[in-house]
Design a protein around this nucleic acid. Structure first.
Lengths: 244, 244
DNA sequence: AATAATTATTGGTCCGACCACCCGACCAAT
DNA sequence: ATTGGTCGGGTGGTCGGACCAATAATTATT
């Protein structure tokens, strides 16, 4: 199931090797080359794509970092099972593949987030230092220069830092990448902005009070609310345009 | 805080560009080049490292995929804040940096896992199909060829698939990477193997019965047990060898 | 039949050249 | 003095071709 791509401010200056990598990735995901089989040799790929071998190599490096291929010196390039990959970047690649957006992956992301983030908020409430509280206070009350969405990302980031769990911080950065693309769908609606503004004050209180239970609940409520909003939005556009 | 590196079966067939990437990463993490500043040009790096520019480029591509640098055509290579990275691979890189193992990161990982995995087990119990149950049954009861550790990884993988959440599957693959390195510390102990064997039967039952609450509890208990075991192991080696 | 040496093929690295792009210096028009 | 355009130097991006190193298949040797 797909949905149209969002507006993107920044220019997509695709480098040649990235386009090559995208094409190869698509073939691999679609299973055109089965797992365990070899890709053509770098030299042959270079001929086929009409690019230099160096370019092919850089594309293959990209796919290797996504762990969808394995490059063996003296042997060849093998396709791996992408379901065995540990690379979050692969999720992004899958999501944006074909210039369409995979709604299932988005749902997956929301589900995951709803489990994780409230729990981390609780931990943050336990571990936060006075410096974190002060950072939060400034961000929530003093930073008039921020839009609600920018403030929201900042608030989450501070909570992640307060949790002291770098793994969580990285996940959050991962979510935020999608946020910049889709956040406006949510934050363009005044009602949602109000809801978030209230959330910022509530979570600030919870963290300040070092109240894990409250922090968790507050966080859960706002994420749950946001998830419902996003789901209903997707339902709506699904009804409107079936297939262009 | 560090601990000695584990035995590694596979030969560390370091490609030249990987060594270069590791050295550069270390410098960046240590903050020798501040965020926002430029790295030397590719040509200068090539001279400094006494390697070809292509090799430098491949190393930089690696660092770009970790999102610790940003390569700008016609401009230069800029250092980014690695705390803004969304790359799990960065965690691995940090963990193995310096040939020492960062215990804090390991703790972080365990904490994260304890939050996530039981919740996903509950979801898996809800969504599992009969095929998943059958897969699980075979793995737990029929696969005499598997060691307890191998079976354990397989069980978790099936649960991840049953959860239907690809994001979870990828996280699990990420954890498993560490498992292969450290699992033996846990599974070499007969008592732990017994505990895991019991767990496999219990989680199978929970999934078969589609009992989310039970699945979550069973999963939590075994992970909590494992975490305690690992923590006490680390305490022990900390006491023994202070600093070599 | 088992083993060792050979060869062909593949990825890894190197070199040097040119293209595409960015930025700052300089100049021209206002 | 400010604005806008132009241009040159430096940067990453791509190219091509060559050789090195690792692997697997083949052949020769025992």
């Amino acid at each position: 199931m797909n949905m149209p791509a969002p507006r993107r401010e920044q220019i997509v200056r695709s480098r040649l090797y990235e386009r090559v990598a995208a094409i190869l990735l698509k073939r691999i995901i679609k299973g055109e080359i089965s797992v365990g089989n070899k890709l053509p040799t770098e030299r042959n790929l270079a001929v086929a794509f009409e690019v230099n071998r160096s370019t092919i190599r850089e594309a293959l490096k990209k796919l290797e970092s996504l762990e969808v291929i394995e490059i063996r010196h003296g042997d060849g390039v093998y396709v791996k099972d992408y379901l065995e990959s540990p690379s979050l970047d692969l999720i992004s690649a899958l999501f944006y593949l074909d210039d369409n957006l995979d709604v299932d992956i988005l749902m997956t992301l929301l589900e995951f987030r709803l489990i994780l983030v409230p729990e981390m908020a609780a931990i943050a409430a336990r571990r936060r230092t006075d410096a974190h509280v002060e950072d939060l206070r400034k961000t929530v009350f003093d930073r008039a220069d921020l839009s609600v969405m920018e403030r929201d990302m900042e608030v989450h980031k501070i909570i992640a830092r307060a949790s002291g769990n770098i793994l969580y911080l990285i996940q959050l950065n991962f979510y935020n990448r999608f946020f910049v693309d889709f956040g406006h769908l949510y934050f363009d609606i005044p009602e949602n902005r109000d809801r978030s503004a209230r959330f910022h004050q509530e979570i600030y209180e919870a963290i300040r009070l070092s109240d894990p239970g409250l922090a968790k609940r507050v966080m859960y409520d706002v994420l749950d609310y946001a998830e419902r909003a996003i789901r209903s939005y997707i339902m709506k556009i699904r009804e409107e345009g079936g297939k262009p």
